Amino acid sequence: MFKNKSYHFLLIEDNDGDYYLISDYLKEKLPEHSLTRYSRFSDFKENELNVKYDAILLDLNLPDNKGNDLVTKICHLFAEIPIIVLTGEVFEEFALHAISLGASDYLIKDNLNPDILYKSIIYSIERKANLQLLKKSQQLYYDLFEFNPQPTWVYDLETLRFLDVNEKAINHYGYSKEEFLNMTIKDIRPKEDIPIMEASLKDFKAEKKLEGKRIFTHLKQNGSEIQVKIDSKIITYMNRRAAIIVATDITEEIEHQQIIEKQNEELKNITWIQSHLVRAPVAKILSIVKETTWHELNGEERNFLFKGLNDSATELDGITRQIIGKSEAILQL
Rank of each mutant, 00 (worst) to 15 (best):
G299Q: 11
E296R: 15
L26T: 10
I259W: 02
V154E: 05
L181P: 00
K208M: 09
I235R: 01
H33F: 15
R127M: 14
N171W: 05
Y142H: 14
I254K: 13
I56L: 05
G325K: 07
H256W: 08
I99F: 03
L201E: 05
T87M: 05
P114C: 12
Y141S: 06
T320Q: 12
F147I: 06
E89D: 11
A313D: 03
A242V: 08
N50A: 13
I12Q: 02
T36E: 09
L62T: 02
V282M: 07
K29S: 13
L30K: 00
E261G: 10
K233E: 08
E261M: 14
P82Q: 03
E32G: 08
G299C: 07
L77F: 02
H97F: 11
F162E: 05
L157D: 08
R321A: 12
E28R: 12
K209N: 06
I270H: 12
I260K: 15
E92P: 04
L26A: 11
E252F: 14
T152K: 08
D54M: 04
A280V: 15
G325A: 07
I250H: 01
T217M: 02
K177Q: 05
L305K: 13
L11R: 01
D64M: 01
A243P: 09
L267H: 13
D18F: 03
H218L: 05
T248H: 04
R321T: 07
